[in-house]
Amino acid sequence: SLSVDNKKFWATVESSEHSFEVPIYAETLDEALELAEWQYVPAGFEVTRVRPCVAP
């Protein structure tokens, strides 16, 4: 099958004044980091952490 098993990760994104967490959907932690950097670094943010979303 061609289905992709995307998992939810939380990326911590920082600017000079703010820090916030955004959801990233990817297959692996490395891919989540790449996606977060691709989305947020060009906008002037720094991705400081990516972690798996742990269900309660």
Rank of each mutant, 00 (worst) to 15 (best):
S1L: 09
S1F: 10
S1P: 10
S1T: 10
L2F: 13
L2S: 09
L2P: 11
L2N: 11
L2R: 07
L2W: 11
L2A: 11
S3I: 11
S3F: 08
S3Y: 09
V4C: 15
V4N: 12
D5G: 15
D5W: 13
D5S: 14
D5E: 12
D5V: 15
D5M: 14
N6I: 15
N6P: 13
N6W: 12
N6F: 14
K7I: 10
K7T: 07
K7S: 06
K7E: 03
K8C: 15
K8L: 15
K8Q: 07
K8S: 05
K8Y: 12
F9Q: 00
F9D: 00
F9C: 15
F9V: 00
W10G: 01
W10H: 03
A11I: 12
A11D: 00
T12S: 05
T12P: 00
T12M: 08
T12V: 05
V13R: 01
V13A: 02
V13C: 05
V13K: 00
V13D: 00
E14A: 12
E14G: 06
E14P: 01
E14R: 14
S15Y: 06
S15T: 08
S15Q: 06
S15E: 03
S15W: 07
S15R: 08
S15A: 06
S16M: 09
S16I: 08
S16W: 09
S16G: 13
E17P: 05
E17H: 14
E17W: 14
E17F: 13
H18I: 13
H18C: 15
H18K: 10
S19L: 06
S19R: 12
S19P: 02
S19A: 07
S19F: 07
S19D: 03
F20K: 03
F20I: 04
F20Y: 07
F20W: 08
F20T: 03
F20H: 04
E21N: 07
E21C: 07
E21W: 06
V22N: 03
V22W: 04
V22A: 04
V22G: 01
P23K: 06
P23G: 06
P23T: 09
P23Q: 08
P23I: 15
P23A: 14
P23Y: 11
I24S: 00
I24L: 04
I24Q: 00
I24Y: 03
Y25Q: 04
Y25A: 03
Y25D: 04
Y25V: 04
Y25G: 02
Y25R: 04
A26D: 00
A26N: 01
A26S: 03
A26H: 03
A26K: 01
A26Y: 02
E27N: 13
E27S: 14
E27T: 14
E27R: 15
E27A: 14
E27C: 07
E27G: 13
T28N: 09
T28E: 02
L29E: 06
L29S: 05
L29N: 03
L29Q: 06
L29P: 05
L29G: 03
L29K: 04
D30L: 12
D30Q: 14
D30G: 09
E31C: 06
E31K: 14
E31R: 13
E31S: 06
E31H: 10
E31V: 05
E31A: 12
E31T: 05
E31D: 06
A32D: 00
A32M: 02
A32G: 01
A32S: 01
L33H: 06
L33M: 10
L33Y: 13
L33C: 06
L33I: 13
L33Q: 08
E34A: 15
E34I: 14
E34K: 15
E34S: 12
E34N: 09
E34M: 15
L35Q: 07
L35R: 09
L35T: 06
A36D: 00
A36N: 01
A36C: 06
A36Y: 03
A36Q: 02
E37I: 15
W38P: 02
W38A: 15
W38E: 13
W38V: 10
W38Q: 15
W38R: 15
W38G: 11
W38Y: 12
Q39E: 08
Q39W: 14
Q39N: 06
Q39D: 04
Q39M: 15
Y40H: 04
Y40A: 04
Y40F: 09
V41W: 09
V41L: 10
V41I: 08
V41F: 06
V41E: 06
P42H: 10
P42I: 08
P42N: 07
P42Y: 07
A43P: 04
A43K: 14
A43Q: 14
A43L: 15
A43W: 15
A43V: 07
G44M: 02
G44E: 02
G44W: 03
G44C: 04
G44L: 02
F45E: 00
F45K: 01
F45L: 04
F45A: 03
F45Q: 00
F45W: 06
F45T: 00
E46K: 15
E46T: 14
E46M: 13
E46P: 02
E46S: 09
E46A: 10
E46H: 11
V47A: 02
V47I: 08
V47R: 00
V47C: 03
T48V: 13
T48I: 13
T48K: 08
T48Q: 04
T48M: 06
R49H: 13
R49F: 12
R49M: 14
R49T: 07
R49Q: 10
V50W: 03
V50N: 00
V50T: 02
V50A: 02
V50H: 01
V50K: 00
R51Q: 05
R51S: 05
R51G: 05
P52Q: 09
P52R: 08
P52E: 14
C53N: 08
C53Q: 06
C53S: 08
C53D: 15
C53P: 04
C53T: 05
V54Q: 09
V54P: 10
V54E: 09
V54T: 12
V54D: 09
V54N: 11
A55Y: 11
A55D: 09
A55K: 09
A55W: 10
P56M: 11
P56K: 07
P56E: 09
P56C: 08
P56F: 12
